[in-house]
Design a protein around this nucleic acid. Structure first.
Length: 302
DNA sequence: CAAATTCCCGACTAGGCCCA
DNA sequence: TGGGCCTAGTCGGGAATTTG
């Protein structure tokens, strides 16, 4: 009996098939079959029941699997301890967020993380917040940035956006001598609804305020598209302030009278709670946020 | 509609290669 | 030399398709 056979046993149990286990371990299907058979021969019991529809642990297989997982967990702890002793830090962090977060909150944090942990590979994925939630639930990613209305215990505060109104420069409100406008006032205007791949957007904010958007002319995912449509005079929109374009010709930006924010939270996958790369990233985010808070920064990381 | 055929997937065996 | 892994070939069963 050896560690390779134990890894095969756990992989077959996790994936439910010898082929999938082989793909996970980087072996051939045949190699997995032989390793498993050798383990069963050595122990004298059938651990995995093979059928045409897949493979599943027998009763005694379940008992052996519990011990096998303990063995692999111990091995991981030994590896981590020895890596630490040698000053070697390796691993991978899969991080998902929606596009606007990659343009605003994350770059300084990712840059600092790579400086502190050059041995950890960071894989970033852009998605909508519903996709991110699904990936976190499935363990497809280790960490996700989600937009929330308030923070919960399992989430880690990352930052916040202020919402602003964007109007065509020739619009009656844009030419009026005012310094702010209410979302309630804009909710009756022809509206370009931009979501940025997030379920918290001008529409949901208006619903929260009890007014709702009365005349949504178009719904777009991309913030840049919404600015182009506003510039053409097709409607007004409300967007997070960091997404505003540098070229503001043809549009006017006004703060909202309502105190509206979009909060961002770092959320780890339940499968990644013991991942040292995830712990390292959360620790860095915590220290950066505290540093900025103590310097009286209005926003956390922006 | 039921039986026959074909296709595909998953698993196993035999034989051979590589390396410590 | 033996263990670990690979490729090629084979088998069995379910699903899909064809045929009468």
């Amino acid at each position: 009996m050896n560690l390779s056979q134990i890894r095969v046993l756990v992989a077959v149990s996790d994936t439910g098939s010898l082929t999938a286990a082989a793909q996970r371990l980087g072996l051939s299907q045949s190699g997995v079959s032989q390793a498993l058979a050798a383990l069963e021969t050595h122990l004298g019991v059938m651990l995995i029941s093979r059928t045409q529809r897949g493979a599943e642990a027998t009763a005694i297989g379940d008992e052996v699997l519990a011990e096998a997982r303990d063995v692999l967990a111990s091995l991981d702890r030994i590896k981590r301890a020895t890596d630490l002793a040698r000053g070697v830090e390796q691993g991978r962090l899969r991080l998902a967020a929606f596009p606007s977060v990659f343009h605003t909150l994350l770059p300084p944090l990712l840059r600092r993380f790579q400086e502190l942990h050059p041995g950890i590979e960071v894989v970033t994925l852009e998605a909508s917040d519903t996709e991110i939630e699904a990936w976190l639930a499935a363990g497809t990613v280790d960490l996700g940035v989600t937009a929330v209305e308030s923070y919960s215990a399992t989430q880690f505060p990352l930052g916040q956006d202020d919402w602003v109104a964007v109007l065509p420069s020739g619009h009656a409100i844009a030419t009026a001598p005012i310094h702010s406008v209410s979302l309630a006032r804009l909710s009756n205007e022809p509206f370009i609804l931009a979501t940025g791949g997030c379920t918290i957007h001008a529409g949901s904010l208006a619903e929260t305020l009890g007014c709702g958007l009365q005349d949504v002319r178009m719904e777009v995912r991309d913030w840049i598209s919404s600015f182009a449509l506003v510039r053409e005079g097709l409607g007004v929109t409300v967007v997070p302030e960091p997404t505003l374009p540098s070229d503001r010709r043809g549009i006017r930006v006004l703060p909202l009278k309502e105190d509206l924010h979009r909060y961002f939270a770092l959320k780890p996958s339940f499968l990644a709670q013991n991942n040292p790369a995830v712990s390292a990233f959360l620790n860095l985010a915590r220290s950066q946020v505290q540093m900025l808070q103590t310097s009286n920064s209005e926003k956390l990381l922006v």
